[in-house]
C-alpha cells in the first residue's frame, strides 16, 4: 500500500486512463463510443494537469483544465450533431462506413 499520494501516482493513473481511451478509439467501431473514448483521454490529461498544478502550487494548470472542458463541451455538441447527420444519411454509426472521400 502507498503511504502518501505523490504526483507519480497521478501520472500512473492518468497514463492508464489515457491508454484505455486510445485502445477504445482503436478497438470500437461505433462512432459514439469512439467520441466517448476521446472524452476519456481528455479527462486523463485534465487529471494530470490538476495534479501538476497542485504540485507546483500554480493555478495556471487548473485554468487550462477549465478551458479544455469548455472546448470539449463545444466539440461534443458539434461532433454529435455531425454524427446525427451521418446517421440520417447512412443509417449507421459505423466509422468504417465513413470512407466516402476515397471515391
Amino acid at each position: 500500500m502507498i503511504t502518501e499520494v505523490t504526483a507519480e501516482h497521478y501520472i500512473i493513473l492518468a497514463t492508464t486512463l489515457f491508454v484505455i481511451g486510445v485502445a477504445g478509439v482503436l478497438i470500437r467501431r461505433n462512432a459514439i463510443v469512439v467520441l466517448m473514448c476521446v472524452e476519456l483521454m481528455l479527462n486523463a490529461v485534465n487529471l494530470l494537469m490538476v495534479a501538476f498544478s497542485s504540485h507546483h502550487k500554480d493555478s495556471a494548470g487548473q485554468l487550462f483544465v477549465f478551458f479544455i472542458m469548455v472546448v470539449a463541451a463545444a466539440e461534443v455538441a458539434v461532433g454529435l450533431a455531425i454524427l446525427v447527420m451521418v446517421y440520417r444519411n447512412t443509417r449507421s454509426t459505423d466509422v468504417s462506413l465513413l470512407d466516402q472521400l476515397k471515391n
Partner: peptide, 12 residues
C-alpha cells in the same frame, strides 16, 4: 518519487 501533491492549499 519526491513530488508530493499538497492538498491543503487555496489555489483550487
Amino acid at each position: 518519487g519526491d513530488r508530493n501533491v499538497a492538498n491543503i492549499q487555496e489555489i483550487g
